[in-house]
Amino acid sequence: MEPKKYDINIEQLFRDDLHQYLLSIGMVDERLPEAQDIEELWLKIGESYLPDGMREFRDYPTVSLGWMMFVGMAIAKYWDTDWELYSKVDDLYKYLRDQRDFDHMDEYVCEKVLLLDEEQQAAMAKTVGECASRTYNLLCHRHLEPGTSEAFRAYVAALHQMYLMGMAMELKRLGYHMTKLN
């Protein structure tokens, strides 16, 4: 899952679009967080997520993309609350998914991990839905042939940015503000 030159360009496209959108609605800071512990988990989480995400993508592309944003949020919350405990969980994606199931993972994350009330859950679902729709739209406009390695790499790049933006959103919600030091 190492990015190639093309992947970096498309991944930057996803990153820039998501960042600008989330910045415009106050969900992230201008400077995105660097959380090495969370970022280092991407490869393992991404690989674990792929079978479920790919299965869902054909019929529910925005769910396939959006659920990864919820995973990023949950990992950031775990990092903040008890990383010593959660860092020992062998597969945090499967841990989250198996609390209920894939279809209801978003609800579990919102209710039990992020502890959002109903109004906050609705707002979060709307934000994640918009991010997933924007990212899917960008994927579609690349005119990638389904089933090709290029399409697969673009999908993984999209998931990666959804994960990182989920992390950034939750860290900001938790009070971590990223500012440039002088």
Rank of each mutant, 00 (worst) to 15 (best):
D80W: 13
E170S: 08
I75M: 09
A123F: 02
L96H: 08
T148W: 07
E84W: 08
K77C: 07
E11C: 02
Q161R: 15
F70V: 00
L85E: 13
E130G: 00
L159T: 05
K180Q: 13
R173C: 00
L115M: 11
D80Y: 14
G175C: 04
T179Y: 14
M169K: 05
M169F: 10
R153T: 04
V109G: 05
P146K: 04
Y78R: 08
V63E: 11
R173E: 01
R31W: 14
D106F: 03
R173I: 01
E130I: 14
L139D: 01
A35K: 10
I45V: 15
D59G: 10
L181Y: 12
L171W: 04
R97I: 06
G166Y: 09
I45P: 01
L13S: 11
V28G: 02
D52T: 10
Y21F: 15
L23T: 05
C110P: 00
V89E: 13
A76D: 03
M27E: 14
K4A: 12
I45R: 02
M27K: 15
T135E: 03
E145F: 08
A154F: 06
K126W: 00
Y86H: 10
I25S: 04
M124I: 01
L96T: 06
Q99P: 01
S64G: 04
V28P: 01
K88W: 07
H177C: 03
F14N: 02
I10E: 08
K112N: 10
M167S: 09
Y108P: 00
R173L: 01
K112T: 02
A158F: 09
A132T: 03
R142S: 13
V63Y: 13
A74I: 06
N182F: 15
E111I: 01
Y155P: 00
D101R: 13
E56D: 13
G66R: 05
W83F: 08
D106W: 02
D117G: 11
M69H: 04
S64N: 03
S48Q: 10
A132G: 03
L65R: 06
W42T: 03
K4F: 12
P61N: 09
M165W: 07
I75L: 14
Y21W: 11
A76L: 04
D90I: 06
E34D: 07
Y176E: 06
E47S: 11
L32W: 10
K88L: 13
H104N: 15
R153C: 09
M1D: 07
Y108C: 01
E84G: 09
Y163R: 02
L116D: 06
E47I: 07
W42I: 08
Y108W: 11
G72I: 10
L174I: 07
E130C: 01
E145Y: 07
W79P: 00
